[in-house]
Design a protein around this nucleic acid. Structure first.
Lengths: 351, 351
DNA sequence: TAATATATTGCAAGCGCTTGCGCTAATTAA
DNA sequence: TTAATTAGCGCAAGCGCTTGCAATATATTA
């Protein structure tokens, strides 16, 4: 108890060398002979030495830590992405510090500042619904802290890496799938149009209808704030429309779950009376009955690439060249299941 | 771009005072007059000063960061707990660094060391399924880094704070509920007995049967590793037993979801043919059809208390007294829903 | 008024590590 | 053999902050 942590002085003394030698050896500096390097490392190991990142960070201005700022960690999409971010970061020798905005602008601001003040080497962000203004990210840019966005990315912040899926295309595909299945009156339950993600999904839905010469009908289109209550309200409203839809495209898992469960509760069969397609990464989509046809986003992949890109930028030598930012668009997969296909025997679980 | 961060020298110079004064003022040291303190803070604010935690941490041996080590972040229980941990920590001025063990012992070891080497002020842990041996935590104890465990806690590590629920009692209650409803042949799908959590749930289940003079029957009791596949297998096996159960107590959400969906798929009605109670924090439990009767653990509360206790211990002055560790047992709530109650009209969603 | 106590502030020594530069010994070139 | 390199290592100056102690200014007491 209370054992003082051992430092490079301790290992230097034990070996009769200078601390510079120890420091360099530990960092594989080629100026130190392989023999000494080995000797030092062995002794450090033996003494249980752990480099103090505070001290080295003070000098190098690097903490080997990345910050992650997401709306809320307990949402399937986010949780999977964060899981993957931590895994990737761990493999690359980085730690991750996490913050949540809870969809609030001010909290997002504060969190960015906390992260910057913690001197993280870079930040991965998915924007809060509330965020319009991007001033707070200039603090990061000003201090040369790279930021990469994923999923909910800003549309007007040049010179940043963005990892997204093509939400327009995904919704277009999903809607077309319904049309292919013979559905003709297709509704939509969407998310806040302030976030491009949901705007794109809505646009993709509309485009599919237009391309198939199906008229839009506002009575079966509802926007929501994606809360449980509002999704339920929207599902109820659409399903009780004067002329209800025979299929619905939902913008996220909660919207589709509410739609399905509400439809069942008023004795509508799915997909016979109303088909549903959604966007979902929730494993439940696969085992629920009816199982849910959904666009599956590669959340883990997004997290992984975001992390790799971020670390790439962190380690980029800005003295020589200018780092070239990119926007990476990943493919989604429409997983066709029971909620949208007539006459298919449901297979339950994974066999 | 590339702006140097401003430090206490900058604000000291601007004000014509010494850096010690600035440092003390910023830390509300009473030795500095209120007037100067105010002046310093104002200037710091104006210049956009952010204290470098690396430098102060070097001196104080405090980083205002807590480490969190959980099996996997993308599981409802964990995600909710972590969410709450971050919220609480944020409110108390701490950042959180997160690691995942992925149920692996070696990964848990490595993560503890990473966290310690990052000099976190304390660590919150929920153990990996694989972990038997607790040596790695002695590294933490040796360096006076407090550790608090929640949910999956070690049974043989004295002098640590633990936040748990009474799993024995919860399972006992859940099983008794089934018995009260008139079910007589009650099965169990459990988790790894190596973790006390699941052992306790199993014991509680058994005790309820014994107290009600119902004989245990191994053909309707299955252990699992809690994977999707294994839960499905167990559900299938039990439901196809020679003499199948009329009710099943499941040890977690996945087990109950698989049981329900498999039962439905072989045309068993729930709860008429087979009732199900589980342990779940998943919001889907409420809206699925049938909705799931489940023990709800106060995950957010656990995370919050764990964080508070940890920070309490971090700030405890060990010079005077010895910190007294405790084990805090929180209440669970059995939320009775459609999967266990006959003749109740299902209410869907939140109205 | 002198002496003592008290309130404010500054000085300077670190915290544990990195790194430019200089030194010595070993190697190579001439 | 001697001069010029090069390899390998140590010195010492920080990085930005905290903090014990000394110094000064101000207030209190005798």
């Amino acid at each position: 108890m209370g054992k003082r942590k051992i430092n490079i002085y301790d290992v230097a003394n034990k070996l009769g060398v200078s601390i510079s030698t120890v420091s360099r050896a530990l960092n594989d500096n080629p100026k130190i002979s392989p023999a000494t390097t080995k000797k030092v490392k062995r002794m450090a190991e033996k003494l249980g030495f752990q480099k103090n990142p505070l001290a080295s960070g003070l000098m190098t201005n690097k903490t080997k830590t990345i910050g992650v700022l997401v709306p809320q960690i307990n949402k399937e999409f986010v949780a999977q992405a964060v899981r993957s971010i931590e895994d990737t970061a761990f493999d690359m020798g980085y730690s991750v510090m996490i913050c949540q905005s809870h969809e609030s602008y001010s909290r997002e601001q504060e969190s960015i500042n906390t992260l910057l003040s913690s001197r993280v080497d870079g930040i991965i962000v998915s924007l809060a619904l509330e965020t319009k203004n991007l001033e707070h990210f200039h603090n990061a840019i000003d201090s040369d802290t790279p930021v990469v966005f994923f999923d909910r990315v800003p549309s007007d912040l040049p010179n940043t890496t963005k990892i997204i899926v093509d939400n327009f295309e995904s919704a277009y595909k999903a809607t077309n799938h319904l049309i292919d299945q013979g559905f003709k009156r297709i509704g939509h339950i969407g998310g806040p149009q302030s976030r491009k993600v949901f705007e794109d999904r809505f646009e993709g839905y509309k485009k599919a209808l237009v391309d198939n010469k199906i008229a839009l009908d506002d009575t079966i289109i509802e926007g929501t704030d994606l809360s449980q209550e509002d999704c339920f309200r929207a599902a109820k409203k659409i399903l009780h429309a004067t002329n209800p839809p025979d299929a619905i495209v939902c913008a996220n898992h909660l919207a589709s779950a509410n739609t399905i469960f509400y439809a069942l509760s008023i004795n509508k069969s799915i997909p016979q009376d109303v088909a549903v397609v959604g966007f979902s990464e929730n494993p439940i989509a696969e085992i629920m009955i009816p199982s849910l046809t959904a666009v599956r986003q590669p959340c883990a992949e997004m997290g992984k690439i975001a992390t790799q890109k971020l670390i790439e930028e962190i380690n980029f030598d800005h003295k020589n060249d200018q780092y070239v930012h990119s926007t990476i668009v990943l493919d989604t997969k429409l997983e066709i299941r029971g909620s949208s296909v007539l006459n298919v025997r449901e297979t339950v679980g994974k066999l």
